Deep mutational scan, measured.
Amino acid sequence: MQNSHSGVNQLGGVFVNGRPLPDSTRQKIVELAHSGARPCDISRILQVSNGCVSKILGRYYETGSIRPRAIGGSKPRVATPEVVSKIAQYKRECPSIFAWEIRDRLLSEGVCTNDNIPSVSSINRVLRNLASEKQQMGADGMYDKLRMLNGQTGSWGTRPGWYPGTSVPGQPTQDGCQQQEGGGENTNSISSNGEDSDEAQMRLQLKRKLQRNRTSFTQEQIEALEKEFERTHYPDVFARERLAAKIDLPEARIQVWFSNRRAKWRREEKLRNQRRQASNTPSHIPISSSFSTSVYQPIPQPTTPVSSFTSGSMLGRTDTALTNTYSALPPMPSFTMANNLPMQPPVPSQTSSYSCMLPTSPSVNGRSYDTYTPPHMQTHMNSQPMGTSGTTSTGLISPGVSVPVQVPGSEPDMSQYWPRLQ
């Protein structure tokens, strides 16, 4: 039975679970980093996980050691009161100082060594604690504590007292930064006198190289990059290397530039699409467009005044059976039934097929058609009795279509119309 579990990581490298990497692998990681390889490249070359490479390099940059820390136990506290007071002093002298600059000053002034120097995250935590204590304490208590930490007896009751030896409130920041720059020169002199001055200088240079600022491109470089971006948004590694040799930039910087440029292009394309949609959409909808001609068919113009009344309900007709019959029939052209047409008796099958359309009241044959006459024609229609054979009435077949029909004066039988409509 094995005491430890061995495995293979996602890159194909072998590791022992819970145990640190061998010293030979750690040394190779540092050597590759000094030669300029990126952590992701080191991870692929040595088949070590990216997190492990970053952790080893980060500890090497901070402490200069590649040895693993002790497994188990607690780390001794490195942010001692003396170190905290120095950090507060540096922050007062130059409020814009960075944590890694404070760390360098602690090393250069001999406050800490490589073994007990606090990390950048520890210094940031100390600065946050100082800021929170400043908010919790009152103004007087804060000034007393700062005077105690600074070891001075001057008056701290006013704002300019934060910067000793100065009279203009805006000047101390520059003086403090100048003092810090002077301390940086002392850093070089002190570290050069040490035993491991060369190694420390190499480590600091490598650290500065990794902690780079934003790349500033010249106009020629920007023009070359934009020209390549117009050709393709995704250049391959050969195109990037050719462009890197042409404009004297690292291939990694060119790759990052193209990634950022593609993101910018997507944002601009989104804005262009929004403007295009806004320009195509009308600002207001016309009133006429809300009524579609496919839904509402136009009603033909009436030929006679009587045809303006298109349904039985508008003429005072309360018989719903006839109203439904007229509205359900398709529109037909106007025609006239003459008196000489043969009077065919209704076929029983045809009569039964339209039995649902006729009223059940037996008085329908005896009703006159003056009910369908509009009010303004009552006088004219009353002067001509319906009993004469020459009287013409208008029957409504569908809305908007008038059918003048000659009705025999002897017997106005409704059943004569249905064979004609089939």
Rank of each mutant, 00 (worst) to 15 (best):
N3M: 10
S6I: 05
S6E: 13
V8C: 06
L11Q: 08
L11G: 02
G12P: 01
G12R: 04
G12C: 04
G12S: 03
V14C: 09
V16P: 04
N17D: 03
N17K: 00
G18D: 01
P20G: 01
P20V: 01
P20R: 02
L21M: 04
P22M: 07
Q27Y: 10
K28G: 07
K28Y: 06
I29M: 06
E31H: 11
H34N: 11
G36H: 06
R38L: 05
R38I: 03
P39C: 06
C40Q: 14
C40K: 08
D41T: 14
D41G: 06
D41P: 02
I42K: 01
I42E: 02
I45F: 11
L46F: 01
L46G: 02
Q47A: 15
V53F: 01
K55M: 02
L57W: 01
L57G: 00
G58A: 05
T63P: 01
G64I: 02
I66S: 08
R67E: 13
P68A: 13
P68F: 00
I71R: 05
I71G: 04
I71P: 00
G73E: 01
R77Y: 05
P81I: 09
K86L: 14
K86Y: 14
A88W: 00
Q89L: 12
K91R: 10
E93K: 13
C94T: 09
C94I: 11
S96Y: 15
S96K: 15
F98M: 06
A99F: 02
E101K: 12
I102W: 01
R103Q: 13
R103C: 05
D104C: 12
R105F: 12
L106C: 15
L107I: 11
S108D: 13
S108V: 11
S108T: 11
E109S: 11
T113I: 09
N114E: 12
D115N: 08
D115P: 08
N124T: 05
N124R: 14
L127A: 15
L127Q: 15
R128M: 03
S132F: 12
E133K: 08
K134L: 12
Q135K: 10
Q135L: 12
Q136S: 11
G138N: 08
A139W: 11
G141I: 12
G141A: 09
G141M: 12
M142W: 10
M142H: 06
Y143L: 13
D144I: 13
L146P: 10
R147P: 07
R147L: 09
R147Q: 14
L149C: 04
N150T: 13
